[in-house]
Simulated assay, not measured.
Amino acid sequence: MPIDYLELNAWHKRQATLLYHFASMPYIKELLERIDALIAFADGLLDERAGLDTAGRALADWRPIDTAGHFSTYAYPALVDFRENVVKSIALRSFEQYRTAGQDQCSRMLDEYAHQMVWASREQEDEFKRLAESVFRYAGLLSDVMYRPSTLDDFSFWYLWQEQKHLFPRMPRFRVRTDVVGVSGQTPPRTGVYVPQEDPMAALQFAWTGGYGELGNTYALNDFGRLALERVGRAGLWSDAVGLQALINEPRHRDLSDIDDVDRANVNLAPSAVSREGFEGRPCRWYFVEMMNDTYEDHDGSYAGTASTATSTRPHRVEAGQRVPQDGWWYTPAQMGSRRYFKKDDTFPSLPGTDFGTVLWIWSPDQSVPKIG
């Protein structure tokens, strides 16, 4: 039986690109190299400055916490443990096991014991902290992908893409495998990226088979999120800060609990404020997203896109009120659980009372009859 391949929409392609990048073996090996460079820098500082401890305590009244010896005893081991965690994580990939980088514990230890590196010069202290912050930020991007349950949503990916898109002058090609199906709360059948079956606005996830890599709920737009989508359009979500600020400042939205007066006054905070109110977690079924090795798109990912479409036969997208062009199962992203069977020449219904804007009915990639009981 031939496989029905689907194509991701533009935003989902960006998400898949980011997820596969941060989950890749080259990325975690680069993290190890950065940790080694940070440790080497710390080694150099300790070798150079440790001899000052005696003079510092005698002449400058250093406390024990101010000495290089104290840093070496209490802070330096946290760097070594961080490195060992990443080394083990690399080895576990052979067993399809993935995990966070473990940077938070190391960061907390350095904050406690390296808050004021009296034993180092100001320039050395500043450089060490700069290198450490860079390593923790790099590790944090990997950890965000591996964290369970996943909390990444469309805004998270949009913000991350603005930061990281310079890394992708060419976009990888992907295809959606409708024959590889995952379910929220369960271990996926294959390690990799998964896309929700029927919601073009819901976020993708990376999941794995080697333990603790279950697919979680997807984060999809709730009623307020769909209202924001209607106001600014897909291209303006989340870049139209002015339009989103106007939305949260409407009188009927003044009581939103996760948006405060600071958010309402600062246009730059409006997108993140809307995102805090605009999503809800939902269980769903997922399709596996296969990355096609050494194959790239003809563009750099800066284009605007549409909903997921089949590469062989492009699924229909028809507005409510129009006639059904083909017998089969259809759904609308304006309503969860909307998948239903229509006959040709029926009329697609509208959804009164929704804030989604124009209601589009989309050909469902799953044309199987649902099981009863």
Results as ranks from 00 to 15, higher is better:
L31I: 02
Y287W: 03
W238Q: 06
P26S: 02
D223I: 12
L45A: 14
R14P: 09
A40H: 10
L131D: 07
D345L: 09
P169S: 02
A68D: 09
L247P: 10
V324N: 02
D300H: 11
H316L: 09
D144Q: 13
A16T: 04
A228I: 08
E127H: 12
E230P: 00
G337R: 00
F22T: 01
W329K: 07
Q322L: 11
W329Q: 08
D346N: 02
L52S: 10
D153N: 15
N222S: 04
E125T: 14
W238D: 06
E125V: 10
A202K: 07
M25K: 11
G56Q: 08
R137V: 13
A203P: 15
M171I: 15
F71D: 05
D66F: 11
L19W: 04
A273S: 15
L167N: 14
R137N: 13
R340V: 00
F168H: 06
G278D: 04
A55D: 09
Y331C: 00
H166W: 10
M291I: 15
F168M: 06
R252I: 14
R170M: 09
L360G: 05
Q245N: 10
P188G: 03
W119N: 13
W158R: 00
M109Q: 03
W330L: 00
C106N: 14
D144M: 06
W208T: 02
T347L: 12
S350E: 08
Q326A: 01
L237C: 02
R177L: 07
R93W: 02
G213D: 06
E280Y: 11
R170F: 12
S338V: 04
V176P: 00
V183F: 05
M1E: 13
L19P: 04
L256P: 00
E133C: 10
L46P: 05
L52K: 07
M336S: 02
A307K: 05
L237E: 13
L79Y: 03
D261Y: 03
T100H: 09
R317P: 02
V193E: 01
Y113K: 00
K344R: 11
I90V: 07
Y194R: 13
A55V: 05
S150Y: 01
P349I: 06
G353D: 11
D294Y: 13
R276M: 08
S107V: 06
F128K: 13
V135C: 05
I248C: 05
N217C: 10
E163W: 11
D111Y: 06
V195K: 01
A235T: 11
G182T: 09
M291D: 13
D144K: 04
P64W: 01
